[in-house]
Amino acid sequence: MSMDATTTSTASGTPMPTEWRDFFTLTKPRVMTLVIFTAICGVLAAPGSIHPVLGFTAILAISMGAGGSAVLNMWWEADIDAGMKRTMNRPLPGGRMRREDARDFGIFLSAVSVALMGVAIGGTGWIYGMTAVTLSALFILLAWPVGQRMRSEDDKMLPEKKLFKFSIYYLFALFAALVLDRVAAYQGWIA
């Protein structure tokens, strides 16, 4: 019997360990490069300066957060991926990995990302922080019907449309909060 990277179990049924490359594939590395590029632009364009080690750590945390989201997305939508030619060979629909492993990997990456950012860089101003938390909560509320694939009778894409609309306002509101936070800090209104 010949062996290749796609072999998932032995003839006797013992599962093969998942290839580390499959875990890497789950993080959607090509999407991640765009996120890293954006983060580097942010670090370079920001007023003031940051120590290179901390700048690198911040970008690493951002990439891990993006990777974690991609992993959780692949975990949640494995059944949809299985039905489309372009995505059917991804590690989960391809049967090269256990679903629980992908879920745990995604949660782990996301948690480490937030913890790393907190430990190395620190928190945000409270105006920006509170706005971000509130907007994220709203985002989760609107994303829930999308994740559960709830369909209304007259418009099958209604939850997706609502979420997309919100995601545009979300960015404007977040940037406005960031500006407000900085202005308040420079004026000495907040610490």
């Binding site: 010949s2 062996m3 032995t10 003839a11 093969m16 290839e19």
Partner: peptide
Amino acid sequence: MTPEEQAEFERRRKARNYVV
């Protein structure tokens, strides 16, 4: 488990251990 399967099993485990 055949010898080939055993070898593949160990190769994957080893590669993962190195990455971790």
